[in-house]
Design a protein around this nucleic acid. Sequence first.
RNA 1: GCUGACGUAGCUCAACGGUAGAGCGGCUGAUUUGUAAUCAGCAGGUUGAGGGUUCGAUUCCCUCCGUCAGCUCCA
Length: 647
Amino acid sequence: MAADIRLTLPDGSERTVPERTTARAVAESIGPRLAQAAVAAKLDGDVVELDRPLARSGRFEVLTEKNPDALPVLRHSSAHVLATAVRRLFPEAGIGFGPSIDDGFYYDFQVPRPFTPEDLERIEAEMQRVVAGDDPFVREEVSREEARRRFAGDPLKLERLEEIPEGDVISVYRSGAFEDLCRGPHVPATGRIKHVKLLHAAGAYWRGDERRQMLQRIYGTAWFSKQDLDAYLLRLEEARKRDHRVIGKALDLFSIQEDVGPGLIFWHPKGAMLQHQLRRFVEDAILARGYELVFTPHITREQLFIKSGHLPYYEENQFPAMAAAAGDAEDVRYRVKPMNCPLHILIYKSQQRSYRDLPVRLAEIANVYRNERSGTLHGMLRVRGLTMDDGHLFLRPDQIQDEIALALELVDFVLAQTFGITYRLDLATRPAEKLGDDAVWDQAEAALKGALEHLGLTYRLDEGGGAFYGPKIDVKFDDAIGREWQGATIQLDFNLPERFELEYTGADNKPHRPVMIHRAIFGTLERFVGFLIEHFAGAFPLWLAPEQVRVLPITDAQLEAARALHAKLRAAGIRSHVDERNETLNYRIRDGEMMKVPYLAVMGGREAEAGAVAVRARGAGNKQDVMPQDAFVATLAEHIRSRARVP
RNA sequence: GCUGACGUAGCUCAACGGUAGAGCGGCUGAUUUGUAAUCAGCAGGUUGAGGGUUCGAUUCCCUCCGUCAGCUCCA
């Protein structure tokens, strides 16, 4: 009666087994050791547990601990073990969701008081007892009525249950005394979870909605081997050393001062040099691409932002209004700008534009201020005083595709070709609170999508992630500990031209409405420099490094020769200084390496006499390169000119 | 903004009801050094701010400010 199904194994061979054979049975038929090592199985890309009867033919694979697809299964099961332990110690705890995430898992609990670090220790110890129990994970399919009965004491689970569409399978997983409404899959038994560690607890809104209750979320990580777990914990520690806040302090790049306020960056001389070089770089790049630089005021009458729609759509991110200026009517108020677009629009509007003039490309590296919520601030990566490398393009509709392509080319030139950064693209569509009609949004979203697809770029869809005035293509990157941030952005806008009644005169001698593109390449200098610090771990390429060469005379006898080399470097535009401190050479080399200076130029008696220099490149250890001073200067000057990624 | 943890010398950290300490860094002196820390001495703190409890508070309690992690929100 049972029909046969055909399973295609990874080696290409086929196996015919009766329908409803379990994955475990198939694994056993392949080999007992494979069955021993099996964690779960995969049928046509879907991960299933070993005891699940197979219902259809397809590509079949046994997942062992070596297979990366097995890790999410382990981690999801670890979340159940966590919940089991919490329920044992805190029987009154309500349960929310407990998924696997990158590198680990979490589980949300509804508890009368938040977990303390001591609670976490107790919970972790209890988890070890759950693991020792080696309870099998048992899957059961139940009716909606039965599920309601079983989760009667768990209001969060009941809420979730009611969202499962009629006709869908409702599955329940039980291990020991713990039962969860869950899709699975799971490892065979709790005993498979050996190398698990709880990391921290924090509040998290139920369903990610800040209007709803806050649950207590416990984060953990789980691995198949102790080595993997230790390696992961070491990786976290190493990442902490790359943190731009740590390096920024160690290399004296920037500070944030309580007297002045959170989210406001002090660029110290070395950090300011980074910003200076980046500004020069991007200004050259955009001037070569037909942009014109502008400068606009930092504060404007509030009326401008009412007209643009920033008030009220963006009001919660703006600083409150300032009083009227001397001589103004009393009801006039000023705002510090959170964006530059309305001001650039006014420059566009300051004269009549012909279709021949378009595209008009205006750019400004401008300071804007946004009233970001206090809990979101993060070093240089999320600040209240932002230095945007902003640009606004005013186009004829027929120029949209080309200009988006040019903007994407510029992004790639700066990020990938210059810095070697790999980035991801998101297409962010209309948000809930938005300006303008859906028809206009349809058009704008289609144009961005068309440009991405025309260029053959892969992208993710960020539903609802657009700006209030238009959809955008965002560039995303990760920080040292894997958090995702947005850098460059290209935004298409049909709304602001409408609100400001922008026009150009067409070939038909009639007025037409231009389209706008808002774009930033770095995003903001704050976030970009913060990211670069982590990307390079403070070891910036030569052209960007605040201090490019440090000249080290071995003894005072070489002081004059060292100063002479320094003068040659300076004359060639190279940022150098002489370390004249009364310390051993070893001490000064160590300091130079720790300060990430690209080249240490050691000047000893032999070199001074020969007009040479002993060059130690950053990170090259004690491998030194003795060369004529002129050759050294010329080589560096060329690397700087070409923005080579050295040393 | 919300939940929790944490704020001690320039930096990294000790001390946890009884006169606040170390290493690094800084300064001074000696040393003149050949590829990742030379030695010695000295200076440096109303323990984030304000209140309270106490004979006595860095330590316990409250409020505020800030930082960190997460959530939410965003370049």
